[in-house]
Design a protein around this nucleic acid. Structure first.
Lengths: 189, 189
DNA sequence: GTCTATAGTCTGATAGAC
DNA sequence: GTCTATCAGACTATAGAC
């Protein structure tokens, strides 16, 4: 792995763990095993390096989520697969986490890949919900875009609950709750 | 307002805006209009001051949420009231936000009020869902604790979506989506 | 490409005068 | 109680040698 790659990977780790504000160039250099000069040779500074790291993380997330969402099965099964997929729950979402960083949100450039990733995810899920509606799988009243937002929010918020309690249990509970609400009706009351 | 109070209030604002890692004693002093000596006279240091600020914020949140949850009406109406209550959506949750702060999570003391507040909220909502079940308002299959986790997660995640897109629309979509799923059935398909 | 040197500013805190 | 002085170390970067 090249020095440039090691710097990006180290930045990805630190951004996930500590956010942009909490990540210093010095810490990045130490994690990457690179010197100061090396880092400033490859990147213009902390924002430039962070941008490269965020873009890579966003791309990776699209890949991972995309594979789960492209899986075969009913709409419910694919949503269930997304909600229940293996995650590093207590570490949170490496993309969503950045929305709580004031300097990421303040920067047009740094926020863009975050915004695009979340928008992409909402769009993909809305498409799946629509398919479910078309197949008569769901209650006709469901609005695909709204349900998609609820699904993504449940995941993002599940991380918050899990980290607050120090246990993954809360994430699982939130996912189960949403899936119960979404479950195809058997008309048994 | 006493100097001590002003220091706590300034810290609350900054913790909400920038998190613990992003908030420096100097910034707190400037916001509070207090000198260094003044701050260190009233508080042992940054962690001590942050603890006082977090406790006050947590208490306030319990008050605000409690009033909404105690409102009259059906279970669905009270949950709806909670989800749709006025919020400073783009600022996020002053308590939930702290879960993304590595130093808050690493500190037993700082995390405690965050954990307790979220746990309290989940408990209150679970109670309301249980009431709804008892009254036949909801599908019998709903598990109160799971639905409560989904509700809190939707709110916390709604903030993430809103901040990612720079608009409150996403929060509202997520809330609407969950309410549609939760809506008492009219048995119309 | 990588290294060391240097620099101005901020961080988080202590000491002691008023 | 509040203020100023002081401090060691970190932050973010630039300069220039190798």
């Amino acid at each position: 792995m090249s020095t440039s790659d090691r710097l990006i990977e180290a930045t990805r780790e630190l951004l996930w763990e500590r956010g942009y504000v909490g990540t210093s160039p010095k810490a990045i250099q130490q994690h990457a095993g690179a010197g100061q000069g090396s880092m400033y040779h490859h990147f213009a500074g902390k924002p430039d390096l962070a941008l490269a790291a965020i873009r890579r993380t966003a791309q990776e997330l699209r890949g991972t989520a995309g594979r789960v969402l492209d899986a075969p099965g009913s709409a419910y099964e694919r949503i269930s697969g997304y909600l229940l997929r293996e995650r590093d729950v207590l570490r949170g979402c490496p993309v969503g986490r950045l929305t709580m960083d004031p300097e990421v949100i303040a920067s047009e450039e740094l926020r863009a890949p975050v915004e695009e990733t979340i928008a992409w995810l909402r769009g993909r899920l809305a498409g799946i919900v629509q398919e479910g509606l078309d197949r008569g799988e769901f209650d006709r009243r469901l609005v695909p875009e709204d349900i998609a937002a609820s699904i993504v929010a449940t995941v993002q918020g599940g991380y918050v609950l899990a980290r607050a309690s120090g246990s993954t249990e809360a994430f699982d509970a939130a996912a189960r709750g949403l899936l119960t609400l979404l479950a195809p009706r058997t008309d048994a009351t």
